[in-house]
Simulated assay, not measured.
Amino acid sequence: MNKIELDKAQSNITETNPARLGTRLKLARQTRGLTLKALSEAANCSESLLSKIENGKASPSLPMLHRLVQVLETNIGWMFEESDGEEGIVFRAGARPLIALDPLRRGEGISLERVIPYSQGHLLQCNIHHIEKDGASAGPIQHAGEEVGYILAGEVELTVGEKQFQLAEGDAFVFSSDLPHSYRNTGDKRASIFWVNTPPTF
Rank of each mutant, 00 (worst) to 15 (best):
I13S: 10
I13E: 14
T14D: 05
E15Q: 12
T16H: 07
N17H: 11
P18G: 10
P18A: 12
R20S: 08
R20H: 05
L25G: 02
K26D: 00
Q30P: 08
T31S: 07
R32V: 01
G33C: 12
T35P: 05
K37H: 12
K37G: 05
A38N: 10
S40Q: 03
S40D: 03
S40Y: 01
E41Y: 07
A42V: 02
C45M: 15
C45S: 11
S46V: 09
S48A: 15
S48G: 12
L49W: 06
L49S: 12
L50G: 02
L50R: 01
K52C: 09
I53F: 12
E54F: 14
G56M: 05
G56S: 10
K57R: 14
K57P: 03
K57E: 15
A58S: 15
A58V: 07
A58H: 08
S59F: 08
S59K: 02
S61R: 11
S61W: 09
L62H: 09
L62S: 07
L62Q: 04
L65E: 00
H66I: 12
R67Q: 13
L68I: 07
V69Y: 04
V69S: 03
Q70P: 01
Q70C: 07
V71M: 08
T74F: 11
T74C: 15
N75W: 10
N75R: 13
I76N: 02
G77Y: 10
E82W: 02
E82N: 11
S83P: 09
S83Q: 12
G85A: 06
G88E: 12
G88A: 07
V90A: 09
V90Y: 15
R92E: 14
A93Y: 04
A93M: 05
G94R: 06
A95K: 14
R96Q: 02
R96F: 00
I99H: 00
I99D: 00
A100K: 15
D102C: 00
D102E: 08
P103I: 08
L104A: 04
L104G: 00
R105M: 13
R106M: 13
R106T: 11
G107T: 11
G107L: 13
E108N: 13
G109K: 00
G109H: 01
G109L: 01
G109T: 02
G109I: 01
S111K: 14
L112M: 10
R114A: 14
R114D: 09
